[in-house]
Amino acid sequence: MIPYLPMLAAKADPVPVGEEWVHEVKWDGVRTIAQVGASGPGADDGVATWTRNGNSSTLAWPDVVAAAPDADLVVDGEVIALNGAGLPDFRVLQERMHVRRAATAARLAAGLPATFMVFDLLRLEGEDLTGRPLLERRALLAEALAGSGWAVPEHYDDGAMLLEATRSQGLEGVVAKRRTSTYRPGERSPHWRKLAHRHRGSYVVGGWRPQEGSTDRLAALLVGEPTPDGLAYRGRVGSGIGPRASRLLTELVTGLGRGASPFADEVPRVDATGTTWVEPVLVVDVETHGSGHTRLRQPSLVAVRTDLTPDDL
């Protein structure tokens, strides 16, 4: 059982300014709650991790578990891994996220090492800290993780500077947080605000299409966005689906077939022809050049988000 659901950030544009705000890098990783010590539920050899929707992820991160501090605590952060350019990249982690065998997880950890960037402390030595101010929690966090393999990212006073620095360095963006903010588990709070440089969004899969000339090689997804009126169609995503992603997606959509479109609006015939409709339960991340008339422009698959459900969107 996950000890705390993560606090979520609201979108910001522009980045907030003023002395009441501090700013940190927005990491392109997997949001993770981690527990160390035997005082909480679900610990495995003293360490356990969960995704943002409460699914256990301990098996997937043996290197993160091995780097844990010798303490009794619960923390919030992002598991990251670097791509060939030396930048945090969610896509690098995709293969590791879905591992269900310890031997496979160990092999992948050796070739694709991960780092846990810990930005908040929720419990320490059995004491709940969520009601304390952010900067107080951060000071205790730095002490608790000293000498461990888990990292505490820097805070910056100048949000505009950090925004430009992350843009020029190819990082994902910035998160601004009020210095006095308490931690509100499971809530999306205006006291935390995020701004990403990339046009990336999470969408629900409503159907798939095979590669031309085949019937079973998944080559494209039809995706939509949850709205008060139902699942609104946003476009067909084919770019980014290579052989490995195709195999993973094929496995995930198996058994989800349905007879009719799950989209609340009409799907254009050019997209609907040849499509196998599926129950709208699978979430994927898509990068796009933006949207026009509600349709994604030049969309490309980034990753499957087994840590998210349509309700999270």
Score class of each variant (00 low, 15 high):
residue 273 T to G: 11
residue 108 L to Y: 08
residue 209 R to Q: 10
residue 20 E to Q: 14
residue 119 F to P: 02
residue 111 G to L: 06
residue 41 P to L: 07
residue 142 A to I: 05
residue 111 G to P: 08
residue 202 S to H: 13
residue 178 R to L: 14
residue 73 L to R: 00
residue 256 L to M: 11
residue 86 G to A: 11
residue 100 R to S: 13
residue 105 A to W: 07
residue 238 G to L: 12
residue 234 R to Q: 13
residue 182 T to A: 15
residue 224 G to M: 06
residue 304 V to P: 04
residue 161 M to L: 10
residue 278 V to H: 06
residue 247 R to G: 08
residue 207 G to F: 03
residue 238 G to R: 02
residue 228 P to M: 09
residue 52 R to F: 06
residue 141 L to I: 05
residue 305 R to P: 11
residue 124 L to E: 05
residue 191 H to I: 00
residue 38 A to S: 12
residue 48 A to I: 01
residue 145 L to I: 04
residue 299 P to Y: 04
residue 201 G to E: 13
residue 250 T to R: 14
residue 10 A to V: 11
residue 157 D to I: 02
residue 82 L to W: 10
residue 181 S to M: 09
residue 260 A to R: 15
residue 148 S to R: 01
residue 216 D to T: 14
residue 129 L to G: 00
residue 105 A to C: 13
residue 246 S to R: 08
residue 29 G to V: 05
residue 83 N to Y: 01
residue 240 G to L: 08
residue 12 A to E: 10
residue 81 A to W: 00
residue 140 L to R: 10
residue 68 A to C: 12
residue 68 A to R: 02
residue 280 P to Y: 03
residue 215 T to K: 14
residue 310 P to E: 03
residue 307 D to A: 13
residue 283 V to D: 05
residue 170 G to S: 09
residue 175 V to T: 10
residue 230 G to A: 07
residue 223 V to M: 02
residue 139 A to P: 00
residue 108 L to I: 15
residue 100 R to T: 13
residue 309 T to S: 15
residue 67 A to H: 04
residue 19 E to R: 13
residue 43 A to G: 00
residue 232 A to F: 08
residue 182 T to W: 02
residue 311 D to L: 07
residue 56 S to E: 09
residue 108 L to T: 12
residue 141 L to Y: 03
residue 186 G to A: 11
residue 283 V to S: 00
residue 72 D to G: 06
residue 89 D to P: 02
residue 219 A to K: 03
residue 126 G to A: 04
residue 5 L to S: 06
residue 172 E to C: 01
residue 139 A to R: 14
residue 202 S to T: 10
residue 297 R to V: 14
residue 142 A to D: 02
residue 206 G to H: 06
residue 274 G to H: 13
residue 264 A to W: 09
residue 96 R to W: 08
residue 71 A to D: 07
residue 183 Y to K: 09
residue 205 V to N: 07
residue 89 D to M: 04
residue 169 Q to E: 08
residue 121 L to N: 00
residue 291 S to T: 15
residue 28 D to W: 00
residue 137 R to Y: 01
residue 310 P to Q: 01
residue 146 A to F: 05
residue 143 E to T: 09
residue 16 P to V: 07
residue 176 A to I: 01
residue 281 V to M: 02
residue 60 A to N: 12
residue 161 M to V: 04
residue 52 R to A: 05
residue 166 T to H: 03
residue 133 P to D: 06
residue 217 R to V: 15
residue 238 G to D: 05
residue 54 G to N: 03
residue 151 A to H: 10
residue 235 G to Q: 05
residue 309 T to A: 15
residue 221 L to H: 02
